[in-house]
Design a protein around this nucleic acid. Structure first.
Lengths: 166, 166
DNA sequence: GGCTTCCGTTAATGCGGCTGAACAACACTT
DNA sequence: AAGTGTTGTTCAGCCGCATTAACGGAAGCC
């Protein structure tokens, strides 16, 4: 039976696996911010209840989460006491929205993933992809979706590859 | 001031944003399974303490998490009471490991992301990418990393794109 | 044998994120 | 003015995932 003294220590394999938890913003936080963004551009205002309804959570949960977001300086209130994104909040919301858009389009249009799955996968990963990675993925897509012979060749090769591997 | 009767309902925007929480396995669960997998192939066995040490968490946390994994039928014990992955557990661990490998290589070798960031991003997303998306991404990489003139052209175009967008 | 070390589990606690229920404040209707 | 409905907040509770502390058992050493 192995004891501490006998066993070779495999220590420190990756150890950034915990960065997942420390990720700012969290998945739910990101969606609160995006909800406010959407509501303000669609309705012209955003209240706690509207956010709760859009995200399909209870008003209590929205109230508590939003007070956290205010503490962090990502959300404020306008003179009419409607919810408002701060500069920082807007920056985060925009980044996550762009990440979602890039990922969803990449999965669907480049990889040929079913639309629903593409959206679901993108939604799960949107807040986790770093800005740099997102930018570079954008560049690859501009390349692969362009109307050039090169891009068309890649897309054709992809279709063959997929036919073979599925 | 808007009330419920006056406000147009924006309801049901996406609503699969919650799939994130329901994701099986969770990020930490996936890493428990992979730790057992690595330990068994490196040391020949895996105990609760080894897992805790590898993941740099307390023994208590490992103990409780592993009992959950046993309840779910993903982890068992061999005759010597060492930890063992069940068929299902092995399947999940392998899938997540493959997803990590694919994502990390895609970010680093195709997108040209810095190695550390590529690993960190991949580690955060590994358990969230569906198998289908992973397979297709694999196919794209086989295409883009192949030793053909076509692949070389894409890589060159990527380098130009990145130079312009950074 | 007895002592120490290591192993695994349990208990109390904390944080994030949700629910449901209760409640005060306010608005709208009549 | 009285009654109804909406809003926002707070509270108790649950779950996931971690912590530290304490404890019982087994392995190894003298």
């Amino acid at each position: 039976m192995p004891t501490k003294s006998a066993a070779p220590k495999p220590k420190n394999d990756g150890s950034y696996w915990r960065e997942f938890d420390r990720n700012k913003p969290s998945h739910s936080m990101a969606h609160y911010l995006m909800a406010i963004d959407h509501l303000r551009s669609e309705l012209g205002y955003a209240r706690s209840t509207d956010v709760a309804e859009m995200l399909e959570i209870s008003r209590g949960a929205a109230s508590m989460a939003l007070s956290q977001l205010k503490k962090r300086g990502w959300v404020g209130e306008d003179p009419h006491r409607f919810l408002l994104l701060t500069e920082e909040g807007k920056r985060i919301a925009t980044l996550v929205e762009e990440n979602f858009s890039i990922l969803a389009r990449f999965f669907e249009q480049v990889l040929g993933v079913d639309r629903d799955m593409a959206m679901a996968d993108a939604c799960k990963m949107e807040h986790l992809m770093s800005m740099d990675t997102g930018r570079r993925l954008m560049a690859l897509m501009r390349c692969l979706l362009s109307d050039t012979a090169l891009a068309e060749k890649v897309r054709e090769q992809m279709r063959n590859h997929q036919g073979a591997s599925l």
